[in-house]
Simulated scan of single mutants.
Amino acid sequence: MAKQIEGVYEKVYECAKKEFLQKGFKDASLRVIAQEAGTSTGSIYTRFHNKQGLFHAIVYPVVIELKSWFLNAQESFHQKDVDYQKQNMFEHTGIETEEFVAYIYKHYDVFKLLLQCSEGTEFSDFLDQLVEIEIEYTVKYMEATGDDVLRKENISAEFLHIVTSSYFSGIFEIVRHDMKKEHGMLYAKQLREFYYAGFSKIYKW
Protein backbone atom coordinates (compact mmCIF):
# COMPACT_ATOMS: atom_id res chain seq x y z
CA MET A 1 0.00 0.00 0.00
CA ALA A 2 1.38 3.40 -1.02
CA LYS A 3 2.25 5.67 1.85
CA GLN A 4 0.37 8.96 1.96
CA ILE A 5 2.59 12.01 1.70
CA GLU A 6 2.26 14.19 4.77
CA GLY A 7 0.36 17.42 4.12
CA VAL A 8 -0.84 16.45 0.64
CA TYR A 9 -4.53 16.58 1.52
CA GLU A 10 -4.17 19.93 3.22
CA LYS A 11 -2.72 21.14 -0.07
CA VAL A 12 -5.58 19.53 -1.98
CA TYR A 13 -8.11 21.38 0.21
CA GLU A 14 -6.30 24.67 -0.36
CA CYS A 15 -6.11 24.21 -4.11
CA ALA A 16 -9.67 22.92 -4.33
CA LYS A 17 -11.00 25.99 -2.50
CA LYS A 18 -9.17 28.21 -4.96
CA GLU A 19 -10.46 26.31 -8.00
CA PHE A 20 -14.06 26.15 -6.72
CA LEU A 21 -14.05 29.85 -5.81
CA GLN A 22 -12.72 30.84 -9.22
CA LYS A 23 -14.90 28.59 -11.38
CA GLY A 24 -17.78 27.33 -9.26
CA PHE A 25 -18.46 23.67 -8.59
CA LYS A 26 -19.66 22.75 -12.06
CA ASP A 27 -16.69 24.15 -13.98
CA ALA A 28 -13.98 23.29 -11.45
CA SER A 29 -11.45 20.72 -12.65
CA LEU A 30 -10.06 17.90 -10.53
CA ARG A 31 -7.13 17.71 -12.94
CA VAL A 32 -6.22 21.34 -12.25
CA ILE A 33 -6.64 20.81 -8.50
CA ALA A 34 -4.38 17.76 -8.60
CA GLN A 35 -1.71 19.57 -10.60
CA GLU A 36 -1.74 22.57 -8.28
CA ALA A 37 -1.59 20.31 -5.22
CA GLY A 38 1.27 18.23 -6.61
CA THR A 39 -0.69 14.98 -6.59
CA SER A 40 -2.66 12.84 -9.05
CA THR A 41 -6.35 12.83 -9.94
CA GLY A 42 -6.30 9.14 -9.05
CA SER A 43 -5.23 10.00 -5.53
CA ILE A 44 -8.10 12.47 -5.22
CA TYR A 45 -10.59 9.91 -6.52
CA THR A 46 -9.26 7.32 -4.06
CA ARG A 47 -9.72 9.66 -1.10
CA PHE A 48 -12.84 11.62 -2.12
CA HIS A 49 -14.47 9.43 -4.81
CA ASN A 50 -15.38 12.37 -7.06
CA LYS A 51 -15.60 16.16 -7.29
CA GLN A 52 -18.79 16.17 -5.22
CA GLY A 53 -17.01 14.26 -2.48
CA LEU A 54 -14.15 16.77 -2.43
CA PHE A 55 -16.54 19.72 -2.19
CA HIS A 56 -18.42 17.90 0.58
CA ALA A 57 -15.21 17.32 2.54
CA ILE A 58 -14.43 21.04 2.47
CA VAL A 59 -17.82 22.52 3.40
CA TYR A 60 -19.68 19.83 5.37
CA PRO A 61 -17.80 20.22 8.68
CA VAL A 62 -18.62 23.94 8.70
CA VAL A 63 -22.25 23.40 7.69
CA ILE A 64 -22.93 20.76 10.31
CA GLU A 65 -21.19 22.76 13.06
CA LEU A 66 -23.17 25.91 12.23
CA LYS A 67 -26.50 24.10 12.04
CA SER A 68 -25.81 22.28 15.31
CA TRP A 69 -24.93 25.55 17.05
CA PHE A 70 -27.96 27.31 15.55
CA LEU A 71 -30.36 24.56 16.62
CA ASN A 72 -28.90 24.43 20.13
CA ALA A 73 -29.15 28.21 20.50
CA GLN A 74 -32.77 28.18 19.36
CA GLU A 75 -33.74 25.22 21.55
CA SER A 76 -31.95 26.60 24.60
CA PHE A 77 -33.92 29.84 24.36
CA HIS A 78 -37.16 27.96 23.69
CA GLN A 79 -36.69 25.99 26.93
CA LYS A 80 -36.68 29.20 29.00
CA ASP A 81 -39.89 30.23 30.74
CA VAL A 82 -42.32 32.48 28.90
CA ASP A 83 -41.52 35.64 30.86
CA TYR A 84 -37.82 35.21 30.18
CA GLN A 85 -38.47 34.75 26.46
CA LYS A 86 -40.62 37.88 26.26
CA GLN A 87 -38.19 40.02 28.23
CA ASN A 88 -34.99 38.81 26.55
CA MET A 89 -35.91 38.24 22.91
CA PHE A 90 -34.08 41.34 21.65
CA GLU A 91 -30.96 40.63 23.71
CA HIS A 92 -31.00 36.96 22.70
CA THR A 93 -31.24 37.72 18.99
CA GLY A 94 -28.43 40.26 19.36
CA ILE A 95 -26.05 37.76 20.92
CA GLU A 96 -27.09 35.09 18.43
CA THR A 97 -26.54 37.39 15.45
CA GLU A 98 -23.13 38.47 16.72
CA GLU A 99 -21.99 34.86 17.19
CA PHE A 100 -23.48 33.86 13.85
CA VAL A 101 -21.60 36.57 11.96
CA ALA A 102 -18.37 35.88 13.86
CA TYR A 103 -18.62 32.25 12.73
CA ILE A 104 -19.08 33.36 9.13
CA TYR A 105 -15.87 35.36 9.30
CA LYS A 106 -14.05 32.45 10.91
CA HIS A 107 -14.86 30.31 7.84
CA TYR A 108 -15.24 33.04 5.25
CA ASP A 109 -13.99 31.09 2.21
CA VAL A 110 -16.31 28.18 2.97
CA PHE A 111 -19.32 30.47 3.10
CA LYS A 112 -18.28 31.97 -0.22
CA LEU A 113 -18.30 28.46 -1.61
CA LEU A 114 -21.73 27.76 -0.13
CA LEU A 115 -23.31 30.98 -1.33
CA GLN A 116 -21.67 31.49 -4.70
CA CYS A 117 -20.23 28.18 -5.90
CA SER A 118 -22.47 25.36 -4.64
CA GLU A 119 -24.91 25.07 -7.55
CA GLY A 120 -25.05 21.41 -8.55
CA THR A 121 -24.14 20.14 -5.07
CA GLU A 122 -26.11 18.89 -2.08
CA PHE A 123 -25.50 22.26 -0.39
CA SER A 124 -27.33 24.47 -2.89
CA ASP A 125 -30.28 24.75 -0.45
CA PHE A 126 -28.09 25.58 2.54
CA LEU A 127 -29.73 28.97 3.07
CA ASP A 128 -33.22 27.48 2.88
CA GLN A 129 -32.34 25.04 5.67
CA LEU A 130 -31.40 27.89 8.01
CA VAL A 131 -34.60 29.72 7.12
CA GLU A 132 -36.71 26.68 7.98
CA ILE A 133 -35.03 26.32 11.39
CA GLU A 134 -35.66 30.00 12.14
CA ILE A 135 -39.30 29.77 11.09
CA GLU A 136 -39.85 26.63 13.18
CA TYR A 137 -38.62 28.36 16.34
CA THR A 138 -40.38 31.63 15.55
CA VAL A 139 -43.65 29.70 15.46
CA LYS A 140 -42.71 27.97 18.73
CA TYR A 141 -42.07 31.38 20.28
CA MET A 142 -45.47 32.59 19.12
CA GLU A 143 -47.21 29.56 20.60
CA ALA A 144 -45.28 29.69 23.89
CA THR A 145 -45.86 33.38 24.53
CA GLY A 146 -49.43 33.55 23.23
CA ASP A 147 -48.42 36.13 20.63
CA ASP A 148 -49.44 33.89 17.74
CA VAL A 149 -49.78 36.49 15.03
CA LEU A 150 -50.22 33.74 12.45
CA ARG A 151 -53.40 32.44 14.10
CA LYS A 152 -54.60 36.00 14.63
CA GLU A 153 -53.92 36.53 10.92
CA ASN A 154 -51.81 39.63 11.58
CA ILE A 155 -49.40 38.04 9.13
CA SER A 156 -49.51 35.02 6.81
CA ALA A 157 -47.20 32.02 6.73
CA GLU A 158 -46.02 33.23 3.32
CA PHE A 159 -45.13 36.63 4.77
CA LEU A 160 -43.18 35.02 7.62
CA HIS A 161 -41.24 32.89 5.16
CA ILE A 162 -40.46 35.81 2.85
CA VAL A 163 -39.32 38.09 5.67
CA THR A 164 -37.20 35.37 7.31
CA SER A 165 -35.64 34.42 3.99
CA SER A 166 -34.84 38.04 3.17
CA TYR A 167 -33.26 38.51 6.61
CA PHE A 168 -30.86 35.59 6.16
CA SER A 169 -30.10 36.64 2.60
CA GLY A 170 -29.37 40.08 3.99
CA ILE A 171 -26.98 38.70 6.60
CA PHE A 172 -25.00 36.86 3.95
CA GLU A 173 -24.58 40.05 1.91
CA ILE A 174 -21.49 40.53 4.08
CA VAL A 175 -19.96 37.66 2.11
CA ARG A 176 -21.31 38.62 -1.29
CA HIS A 177 -19.96 42.16 -0.86
CA ASP A 178 -16.65 41.10 0.69
CA MET A 179 -17.19 43.28 3.75
CA LYS A 180 -14.38 43.57 6.26
CA LYS A 181 -15.27 42.06 9.62
CA GLU A 182 -15.74 45.33 11.50
CA HIS A 183 -18.06 46.66 8.79
CA GLY A 184 -19.90 43.35 8.53
CA MET A 185 -20.55 43.12 12.26
CA LEU A 186 -21.98 46.65 12.30
CA TYR A 187 -24.09 45.98 9.21
CA ALA A 188 -25.54 42.80 10.75
CA LYS A 189 -26.39 44.67 13.97
CA GLN A 190 -28.19 47.38 12.02
CA LEU A 191 -30.03 44.80 9.92
CA ARG A 192 -31.21 42.96 13.03
CA GLU A 193 -32.46 46.20 14.59
CA PHE A 194 -34.31 47.05 11.39
CA TYR A 195 -36.11 43.71 11.24
CA TYR A 196 -36.76 43.67 14.98
CA ALA A 197 -38.50 47.06 14.71
CA GLY A 198 -40.79 45.60 12.05
CA PHE A 199 -41.70 42.59 14.15
CA SER A 200 -42.20 44.82 17.18
CA LYS A 201 -44.84 46.66 15.17
CA ILE A 202 -46.56 43.41 14.24
CA TYR A 203 -46.41 41.99 17.76
CA LYS A 204 -47.18 45.39 19.35
CA TRP A 205 -44.24 44.99 21.75
Rank of each mutant, 00 (worst) to 15 (best):
R47L: 06
G38F: 05
S43K: 11
T46P: 00
E36I: 01
K80H: 14
V62K: 02
H49V: 01
V32T: 13
F77R: 10
Q87K: 14
A73G: 02
V59A: 12
G38W: 00
N88S: 04
R31V: 11
F77I: 09
M89S: 05
H78W: 12
N72L: 08
V59Y: 02
D81L: 02
K51N: 01
H56R: 11
F70Q: 07
W69M: 08
F25N: 03
T39N: 09
E75S: 10
V63Q: 04
H78T: 12
V32C: 02
L66C: 08
R47E: 02
L30P: 09
M89K: 14
Q79F: 06
E36Y: 10
V32D: 08
E75W: 03
A37D: 07
H78E: 10
P61L: 04
D81F: 05
Y60E: 15
T39D: 08
V59G: 07
D83N: 11
V59C: 13
Q87V: 04
A28N: 11
Q35I: 07
F48H: 01
F55I: 04
G53R: 00
Q87E: 15
S29F: 07
A28R: 04
K86L: 15
L71I: 12
R31Y: 12
I33K: 05
Q85F: 04
F77G: 09
A73V: 15
I58D: 00
K80R: 15
N50R: 12
K86N: 12
G38V: 05
H56D: 15
T39F: 08
T39A: 06
F55T: 01
N72E: 15
V32A: 12
I44Q: 01
V59P: 06
G38R: 07
H49N: 12
T46H: 15
I44Y: 08
A37K: 11
E65L: 02
S29R: 09
G42Q: 06
Y60T: 03
A73I: 03
R47V: 01
Q35C: 02
F77P: 06
I58P: 00
T46W: 14
N88M: 10
K67T: 10
S68C: 04
G42C: 10
